[in-house]
Amino acid sequence: MSKLFLVGDVGGTNTNLALAKHDQSGIHLVRKARFSTQQEKSLLAPVERFLEAAREQGFVDIIDFCCISGAGPVQPDESIQLTNAPWSIQASELSSVLKIPVKLINDFTALSYAVTLLDYRDTDAVTQLPHPDGSLYEPRDGIMLVIGAGTGLGVGFVDRIGNNIVAFPSEGGHSEMPCFDDLSHAVHRWLSNKYGYSAGAELVISGQGIANIFEFVCSDEFRVQMLTSDYAVSHAALTTGLSETAKHILALPRPEWPANIALHAENDVFCTLAMELFGRLYALKAANLASIFLPAGGIWLAGGISSKNEAWLLKNARFMRWFEKNYAPHIRQFLAHTPVLIVKNYDISLLGAAVAALQLSAHD
């Protein structure tokens, strides 16, 4: 018997909604739409517009269950206060209007469910990052670690043994920032002074993190003496004043900074340095988490930043060279054999919510 689910993925930037059908052939998204999280005041309004548009186009099937993933921890009252948006999601509010059961899950719990559907050999959906020596390794049964730099930094993990799948929520994006040199320590001090607390990973490994790093390297706090030779950027260009590109980016609304910084990563020294430090911190954080979870099933880099900057992360093994750094020889050996993959399927969060809906509705 087939089932129809209303599923959603609510992040700091976008709110994605879909109708997902489960039948003998699997789970399929039959209708989807995207809304701006920042322009909405709650989830209810876009849900109502989405369903009204579906009805106007003749979609009359009865929805059995609703599962919404949100960027934030699920509270005991089945609510999520979004970490990068000014409103919350209330399961009771949605359920009373939709007249169906509603379940909320963390966004990276949804992604953790979703990566179990992916075939690491499907190059349309996944890119595996070669290790510096060119080697590639097959994900095995066990822990699959999901890390995603987007508007914020999300972390989740799922334990897969055959067909048995258990996903777990996490707030690992708010753990410690992996400082490793004078520049990263200086950025950490600057951010810690700004926020009044020791700066966490999300403040440098995310869209807002790219903006934060860029602001620092463009500020009077930055000194070229903080750089080691392996940054391979022009000290002269950094000390003769801000480039026209940097000035242009700084004049834009801050939410537009990350995409423009990435766009100019190859041709502007300030953008290059910001993206280089971001990439190293991202890799080191992934390695830190790998030493905790020992993910035999691989590390799956989700979130829009990884997929949009795939070429940057791949070039000269930029990500993987730093991923394999650790003071302990046995951890370096483990990291050197751990598969790391970029998730390119933009529907992955919705599919994860649909997988969760299928499991949760069976127990409702």
Rank of each mutant, 00 (worst) to 15 (best):
S291G: 09
S229K: 15
L281D: 00
N260A: 09
I292G: 06
A246S: 09
W257N: 04
L314C: 04
I249F: 01
N309C: 02
V269N: 04
A246G: 08
I299V: 14
A237H: 10
V233P: 08
N267I: 02
A259I: 01
Q225K: 15
K308S: 15
L277G: 03
P329S: 00
V233Q: 01
A246R: 13
T272K: 15
W257E: 00
Y231N: 09
K247C: 09
F278L: 01
W300L: 05
E310H: 15
I331N: 06
I249W: 03
A265V: 05
N260W: 07
G279M: 07
A283C: 10
L301A: 12
L313C: 07
L289K: 10
L238G: 01
I249Y: 02
D230A: 07
A302T: 11
D230I: 14
D268M: 05
L273G: 04
K285M: 12
T272E: 06
T245H: 02
L313F: 14
A283H: 11
A287K: 14
R223G: 10
D230Y: 15
W257M: 09
Y327H: 08
L289F: 07
A296T: 11
L277I: 12
L289W: 04
A287F: 12
F319N: 05
N260K: 15
R321Y: 04
K247W: 07
R254G: 02
R254P: 11
T228N: 09
P253Y: 01
V224I: 06
Y231T: 05
S234F: 05
F270K: 04
R332P: 12
I292F: 07
S243D: 00
F323C: 04
Y282W: 13
W322V: 09
E266Y: 14
M320V: 05
H330M: 12
M320W: 10
I299Q: 08
C271G: 05
G303M: 10
T228A: 09
L242I: 02
A262S: 14
A251W: 13
V233H: 06
M275T: 08
N260V: 07
